[in-house]
Design a binder for these strands. Structure first.
Length: 275
DNA sequence: CGAGAGTCCTGAAGGC
DNA sequence: TGCCTTCAGGACTCTC
């Protein structure tokens, strides 16, 4: 399940193989993702050059250059999607929905069994799109800190865990890292967001940044079906403190980790360390 | 506007 | 062995 570290790991893995390459051919086998893949995507991409790949939240943005006005290929991996490179001769497997053949004979393949992902086109060089324009700050960028969380949370009754998972507040904090960051900050996930102090939001902001940065350094998590661009699994699961650790002893105090449901999602926390 | 539920989808896992 | 149910999860969309 790709979260921000997995998406960033994917971006870095793709960079060296696609920058400066001409897209020779695009093959779409199934357009039914979260939204349909545009029927003219092949025509928009073929013959054009990839000049960069950036990331906004969990969206990957491919800069596509063209003499007659370029654009941006917007990709989201949903929760079961992956982008990986392989050889042209590799036969496609079930749920391999899109192939992008590059001039250097590298094949970029999009795989997504649950089809919650997206592949859309933004015309022009400016990454403006309804999906992007309302997003909150990047957790590892300059505009994210405890003050931002504190100010955005006043009068909010939603739980702190659901609050930090809201992409309009801050992008890239998914279910796994939300539990991990709250554990690191010692905050109970059920606490109403509006009742968390500025001091504790400072701790939480730092915890979010450290948790994500560590996961990126480790190459992303591999809790379910995530694999890196080269097909190897990530390793964050080895250092998860609470996620998927129900009834296991807390690494800090030994109290049994508890799991609850919040917003139809599983939350894990230590009843002793998090208050 | 905020909060909460519903929704898309497939595959793994567990129960009987 | 095999069917049925439950769970997993990002994030938009709808309702109140």
């Amino acid at each position: 399940m790709p979260e921000l570290p997995e998406v960033e790991t994917t971006r870095r893995g793709l960079l060296t193989k696609v920058i400066g390459q001409t897209i020779l051919r695009v093959t779409v086998r199934d357009r039914r993702l979260r939204w349909p893949i545009p029927t003219n995507l092949e025509k928009l991409l073929e013959g054009r050059v990839v000049t960069g790949i950036s990331r906004r939240g969990k969206y990957l943005l491919w800069d596509i250059e063209a003499s007659s006005g370029g654009g941006i290929l917007l990709c989201h991996l949903g929760m079961s999607g992956s982008l990986f490179t392989t050889r042209l001769s590799t036969p496609h497997a079930k749920h391999d929905h899109v192939d992008i053949t590059l001039g250097n004979k590298v094949l970029v393949r999009y795989h997504d069994s649950r089809r919650f992902g997206a592949m859309l086109w933004i015309a022009g060089a400016i990454p403006s799109h309804p999906l992007l324009d309302t997003l909150g700050p990047e957790p590892l960028g300059d505009h994210f800190d405890g003050a931002h969380l504190f100010n955005a949370s006043r009068e909010r009754t939603v739980s702190i865990k659901e609050f930090i998972m809201n992409a309009h507040i801050v992008v890239g904090v998914g279910n796994i890292y939300a539990s991990e960051a709250l554990f690191a900050a010692g905050i109970r996930p059920t606490t109403p967001a509006g009742r968390v102090s500025h001091r504790r939001y400072d701790l939480l902001a730092t915890a979010i940044q450290r948790t994500l940065a560590r996961a990126i350094d480790a190459g992303g998590s591999s809790l379910r079906d995530y694999v890196k661009v080269n097909g190897e699994p990530g390793h964050f699961q080895l250092s998860a403190n609470v996620y998927d650790c129900a009834t296991k002893p807390c690494r800090v105090c030994g109290t049994l980790i508890k799991t609850i449901r919040q917003g139809q999602r599983s939350t894990y926390f230590c009843p002793h360390c998090q208050r």
